[in-house]
Design a protein around this nucleic acid. Structure first.
Length: 356
DNA sequence: CATTCGTTGGAGCTACTCGA
DNA sequence: TCGAGTAGCTCCAACGAATG
């Protein structure tokens, strides 16, 4: 559900936080990434499912600092014999934070590691003070999986009482699953997911990641997005997105598979990699915005020049909304992270912003 | 080609037990 | 008889694999 707008908000907030800290400190803040593998999914025998994958053929472990850091027991246990254990069993080097996004995906580089985040179903990115972060990860407990053995390995963090909104549900077990955090001296960017379905892909290399590595069209750019391909970004890679759209149209006009599928499904599923940044929310919202019946077959959109041109122009106009200063001013202002409880449903705020 | 399943957790509902 | 408490169930969301 976190779609184009939510990712824009995160990027904007992180960028502004770094800028503000740099101004206050007089120097760019340094950070490191910490992974909480005790919260990762286990999958099953029949259905292997992993929260994390790595690409580390360009990386040497001995580059990381040697100190007396003691990793968490449950994190270590979960990481044991995993190809990504090197990210958990030591402290990782600090570096400048660099950022990239493409459609629904988000990439953050610090030190030797770049992490590509696929926010999946309902992951949430929260910027908080270092003090709040420390309190948040202080106590863990078995998760809520009905299988007790699994629950003891798929753990959750106990939400400190001061973070619980007064008057909110007294029944619910107040826990949070923290998958990863980008930790600076004064603040932390925390990735949490109540359903644990977010996924990460870490690319490690022998040189620190730089913002130049993450610029559109860099040598690294194609590699960064291969694990979670969403297609060319409608704002950052407009030319490539338009070419992909035209190729899709050609296919539909040649009666390629899916030519009679409802347009709303094709946009939401994005298996064509043409509708980057769209998910179920934006697919429906966009078709409302463009005044197109969601059940209209793709062939109806593509078969007429004027109709298709209008469709194309509406995508360009619509996708701009989520990067506009007006949207970011209204939806990406930093507030107290716990203002509305742990689960702030961002997409509702986005919908309201557009519809009012 | 379309549909279902399986990886998750919480909401929301029904149906049930238990004690007063 | 009636309430509180709770066990158990369905549903839902993204997404890829498997199945019909």
């Amino acid at each position: 559900m976190p779609e184009d707008g939510e990712v824009s908000v995160v990027i904007h907030q992180v960028f502004n936080k770094i800028k503000a800290e740099a101004k206050k400190l007089g120097t760019t803040p340094l950070a490191y990434i910490r992974l909480f593998s005790r919260c990762f999914t286990l999958g099953t025998k029949n259905k292997p499912y992993s929260s994390i994958s790595v690409h580390n053929s360009r990386y040497t472990e001995s580059l990381e600092p040697m100190d007396d850091y003691v990793p968490n027991h449950f994190d270590l246990q979960r990481a044991s014999r995993q190809p990504w254990a090197y990210l958990v069993n030591r402290r990782l080097s600090s570096g400048q934070i660099c950022l990239a996004r493409r459609g629904k995906c988000l990439a953050i580089g610090v030190g030797y590691h770049l992490t590509v985040f696929h926010l999946g179903l309902e992951a949430k990115v929260t910027i908080m003070s270092h003090a709040d972060y420390t309190k948040l990860i202080e106590n863990d407990c078995p998760g809520s999986n009905p299988d007790r053995t699994k629950a003891s390995r798929m753990r959750s963090f106990v939400t400190p009482p001061q973070f619980i909104e007064p008057g909110s549900s007294s029944k619910a077990k107040r826990t949070i699953n923290v998958f990863a955090a980008i930790v600076a001296d004064t603040f932390a960017i925390v990735f949490s997911d109540f359903a644990r379905l977010m996924r990460m892909h870490v690319i490690s290399k022998d040189q620190h990641w730089t913002q130049a590595d993450l610029d559109v069209g860099s040598l690294e750019w194609p590699l960064i997005w291969t694990t979670f391909p969403d297609g060319p970004d409608w704002v950052l890679e407009r030319g490539a997105a338009l070419i992909a759209l035209n190729n899709w149209r050609d296919g539909v006009c040649e009666y390629a598979s899916g030519f009679s599928k409802p347009i709303v499904d094709v946009i939401a599923e994005n298996s064509t990699r043409v509708f980057s940044g769209f998910g179920r929310h934006l697919a429906n919202d966009f078709l409302h915005y463009a005044a197109i019946f969601p059940g209209a077959p793709c062939s109806w959109i593509c078969s007429d020049d004027i109709r298709f041109e209008r469709f194309k122009q509406q995508i360009l106009k619509y996708t701009e909304i989520w990067r506009s200063p007006e949207f970011l001013r209204r939806c990406a202002m930093l507030r107290r992270p716990w203002h509305a409880g742990v689960r702030i449903v961002q997409s509702d705020a986005l919908t309201r912003c557009v519809n009012t």
